[in-house]
Write a protein that binds this DNA or RNA. Structure first.
Lengths: 112, 112
DNA sequence: GGGGTATACCTTGGGCCACGAGGTATCGTA
DNA sequence: TACGATACCTCGTGGCCCAAGGTATACCCC
């Protein structure tokens, strides 16, 4: 099964997470709010998607985790590893390819 | 559970099929080749994805099927129903929303 | 007649992943 | 005391994608 590489799409949550963390380290709850905020409500990433994704990303060594305590609450800050940056580069390119591809089909279809 | 409506993404094959059929009626094999051709190899829709998708779309009354015989081979031409057009409109809008959303996150991340 | 390629349809099995729902705990506030 | 925001988490369901494999016709070449 190779590595779910050339999938048509999928993996958007992973892409969002990696992309945000490329800018600075963030914690889960903050990532969820940021996605909603930056995309102006176009995208919402649920916690049932986010946390498992973060754990998977960490165990795949794409993210590094740092536990801290703020105001009595636990926060886990995540940052990109080198492998994470490579993965981000690949996923971004995949996304652009698919995005352009879909646009080309939509264009064809609509103007007839 | 509602109708897999507000999904983050997914459903790209369905979108492609509906979009192509909005232009003119086509048969399965032709759709597969067209996707590859129009997208300049950016997108490839396998037959294991395409045919089940076409059947599902037909049973949901989004497509209409018309069996014909050409040169001794069977072709099944599909065309959009009214419901299919409505579905296409919705999926296109969803796609544009997600696409813009992802772009906004990628933009933030890369120059941040 | 045998082999290869293109056309044209199909199903099955497996697996990934998104999602909703629900759970724990702290803090501030009304 | 109850609620909402913050902050983490898991589980079960189900959708959907995919590779692989299967059937059959037409055409070409040798």
């Amino acid at each position: 099964m190779a590595d779910r590489n050339s999938a048509l799409m999928s993996g958007v949550p992973e892409l969002l997470v990696l992309s945000l963390l490329a800018g600075r380290e963030m914690y889960g709850y903050e990532i969820a709010r940021s996605v909603k905020l930056i995309s102006r409500d176009a995208l919402v990433i649920g916690e049932g998607v986010l946390y498992p994704a973060l754990h998977a990303l960490e165990s795949r060594r794409l993210l590094r985790a740092k536990r801290t305590r703020v105001d009595g609450r636990t926060r886990i800050y995540y940052s990109l590893t080198v492998r994470g940056r490579a993965r981000l580069a690949k996923l971004s390119e995949d996304w652009r390819r698919v995005s352009r591809g879909v646009a080309s089909i939509l264009g064809e279809g609509s103007h007839g």
